[in-house]
């Protein structure tokens, strides 16, 4: 298992390296300008290591990665690693809050649909979930801004905090909702929470749809088990049977689903962050894309890929630890 994970990570690195090398703009010309004399171009090419054969360039790239060096961003003039360290907490905050919300809502909805299988409730939950798979994230984000920010005026606009709190909060964890609490500034905490509300609820809806659907499918199987019939025959009430007999058998499978959902949230965050001007890794990625700034693109893509693989591995390990049947 570990060897296959390492191979996958290696493959990810090769893939992102190749993506970074086949770009339409020559990075040397981009650095020295169109009108640079021939000898300057040749010297710059040698300095950037781009006159070497591809495999040598790849080894060089690996060596850089091993030292945590993702190259420089042309746009921000910072090392990409520094930028990522600065932008990542915002995405982490968004995705984690969305995940927690979707677990709290999605699991009970899925269980409810399974218990009432075939009823109007079940159908309604099904449509709600299918809609969650079909609405583009950017559409919901725009509708939400239109209604709650523009028309009703009850939600704050795009961004992570109000301009008056800008630079007021000492970054400790990088998670604004926690940093404001550490600073003891309740007004700023409330401001951060209200700014999070819209993107978090929208992201949570998408993962909720997936979690609820999977919970329903697992629970329908679990409720058919003989131990459930036995528990009912012994006179236990319906709710007790569902939650303390059937649900625990499903919980282990749900861990895998939740890990996959978390990975999917990273994808949703790319679009949501663009609409809500949320200064996270997704916005960093798209802004760099627009400006053909390849190092940040490759760096953030690689990071997201590594997180994805890591989450899958984590789900696998937890599954093995928690389910006594898996050897």
């Amino acid at each position: 298992m570990l060897s296959s994970v390492i191979l996958t990570l290696f493959g990810l690195t090769v893939l992102t390296f190749l993506i970074g090398r086949v770009m339409p703009v020559d990075p040397v010309i981009a650095a020295v300008g169109d009108n640079a004399p021939e000898d300057v171009i040749i010297r710059a090419r040698a300095e950037m290591g781009l006159d070497q054969p591809l495999p040598i360039q790849f080894l060089h790239y690996l060596n850089q990665l091993a030292h945590g060096d993702f190259g420089m961003s042309v746009l921000t003039k910072n090392p990409v690693a520094t930028d990522i360290a600065r932008f990542f907490p915002a995405t982490f905050e968004l995705a984690t809050a969305a995940l927690l919300l979707s677990i709290v809502i999605g699991i009970p909805l899925g269980v409810w649909a399974a218990v009432r299988q075939g009823s109007i409730t079940d159908q309604a939950i099904r449509v709600l979930c299918l809609a969650g798979h079909s609405v583009p994230v950017f559409m919901l984000s725009m509708i939400s801004l239109l209604i709650f920010y523009s028309a009703l005026g009850i939600a704050p606009g795009p961004g992570r905090q109000d301009i008056i709190y800008d630079g007021m909060i000492e970054p400790v964890t990088g998670l604004l909702s926690i940093d404001t609490l550490i600073a003891g500034d309740l007004d700023a905490f409330w401001d951060a929470l209200t700014h999070m509300a819209q993107p978090v609820i929208i992201l949570a809806y998408f993962s909720m749809a997936y979690i609820a659907r999977m919970t329903r499918a697992f629970m329908i199987d679990a409720l058919k088990g003989e131990y459930v019939i036995t528990a009912r025959a012994k006179g236990l009430t319906g709710l007790k049977v569902v939650w303390s007999h059937a649900f625990p058998t499903v919980a282990v499978q749900l861990i895998t689903v939740i890990a996959l959902t978390y990975a999917g949230l990273l994808e949703g965050a790319v679009v949501t962050e663009t609409v809500f001007a949320w200064p996270g890794i997704g916005q960093y990625l798209t802004t760099s894309l627009m400006n053909a700034d390849m190092n940040p693109v490759v760096g953030s893509t690689l990071l997201i890929g590594f997180i994805y693989v890591g989450l899958n591995l984590l789900a696998d390990i937890l599954y093995r630890l928690l389910d006594p049947r898996v050897q």
Partner: peptide, 23 residues
Amino acid sequence: RITDIFLAFPRLVLALAFVAALK
């Protein structure tokens, strides 16, 4: 293994990187 590598990215993120590399 090759399939796993491609599955290891969220779809939109990988597509974005590819489009950036092309035009």
